[in-house]
């Protein structure tokens, strides 16, 4: 089967920084790939290379089987892009922006106009359609930019942080739009800072850091890599934490983490609700006052932190990318 997106060994260096350090990606047609990574990981660089905006220093890539480096014009006919920063013309109205994009996709005047109105309606921008986008809020501009990526109904769409700057309603709406697209067979590569978003939308998640892929798989398989569920509780008085640790540790499958400042106790467990019930019984016997207690499955946040902890640590230090 032909893959919608295929990249091999992508390398991109800037002076002193290796933005991409050998990235391989495969996205089967009709699926969604979520690219996750901390700031500066190389997400935007990947999107720019795949959408023909940037030439890599090494490696190769194909989109719908067409080589990105040798036939960029043909690739552009098959893709839609919404970059990290909204690329709309601030003096044109929303309608004029979309109409212009339609014409530059060579859809013809009639289809461009119809498509512009259609998308403005789909993205709740009808009322603002005939106002210059300078007067739009950040979220409206973002939605218009996304609409721009859909004008020609391309088979492959790249969205770089599509919901950054959207309010919760805007975000769920965006998810709906994306899910509709995917149901229609569109292949999607999206980058995001929201792990929940990758969890909801992506079939496959790729975690990158410092220009390298550090983990890859479905949301579930990534969660499994980080481990099972955890018992978490917060006590009213930090003084009892030592006693709590003593009685609960035998229930766990790993060492507990205790934080006096936050009065919290976190411990990997297995056995689900029964462990929770047993823990509550033991604490009840001792009359420990609890503020909060629960059993938590690992979220992608845990995955993210576990995998890129080094990267967050690195923050604030001078970038050492060039030394590698």
């Amino acid at each position: 089967m032909d893959h919608a997106i295929e990249a091999r060994g992508l390398v991109k260096r800037y002076k002193g920084v290796t933005a991409l350090d050998g990235v391989d990606l495969t996205v089967p047609a009709g699926t969604v790939l979520g690219l996750l990574g901390p700031n500066g990981a190389g997400k935007t660089t990947i999107v720019r290379v795949l959408s023909t905006l940037l030439r890599p220093d090494g490696g190769s890539a194909r989109v719908t089987g067409v080589d990105v480096l040798t036939r960029p014009a043909a690739v552009r006919r098959r893709i839609g892009l919404s970059g990290q920063y909204a690329a709309v013309d601030e003096y044109l109205t929303g309608y004029e922006n979309l109409d212009m994009i339609g014409r530059l996709y060579h859809l013809g005047a009639r289809r461009s106009r119809a498509r512009a109105r259609e998308l403005l309606a789909a993205f709740r921008l009808e009322d603002a359609a005939d106002r210059p986008t300078r007067t739009y809020s950040g979220g409206m501009r973002r939605r218009l930019d996304l609409a721009g990526a859909l004008v020609a109904d391309p088979p492959v769409i790249f969205l770089d942080e599509p919901t950054t700057g959207l309010d919760p309603r805007g975000r769920t709406e965006m998810w709906d739009v994306i899910q509709t697209l995917v149901a229609g067979g569109t292949t999607l590569l999206l980058t995001t800072q929201y792990l929940e978003e990758a969890d909801v939308l992506a079939d496959e998640i790729v975690v990158i850091d410092q220009g390298r892929i550090i983990a890859q798989g479905t949301a579930d398989s990534l969660k499994r890599q980080v481990g099972g569920e955890r018992l978490e509780l917060t006590v009213a008085d930090a003084a009892v934490l030592a006693g709590v640790t003593e009685v609960l540790t035998p229930l766990g499958v790993g060492r507990p983490a205790v934080d006096d400042g936050r009065r919290s106790f976190v411990m990997p467990v297995s056995g689900g609700p029964e462990v929770l019930a047993e823990a509550l019984r033991l604490l009840g016997e001792r009359q420990v006052r609890l503020e909060d207690v629960g059993l938590r499955r690992p979220t992608l946040d845990d995955v993210f932190l576990a995998l890129t902890g080094r990267a967050t640590e690195r923050d604030g230090r001078p970038d050492d990318g060039g030394a590698r």
């Binding site: 905006l53 014009a73 892009l81 970059g83 690329a87 994009i101 530059l104 996709y105």
Partner: peptide, 8 residues
């Protein structure tokens, strides 16, 4: 960037 991603 928008222009450059289009088949114009």
């Amino acid at each position: 960037d928008r222009f450059r991603s289009l088949p114009m």
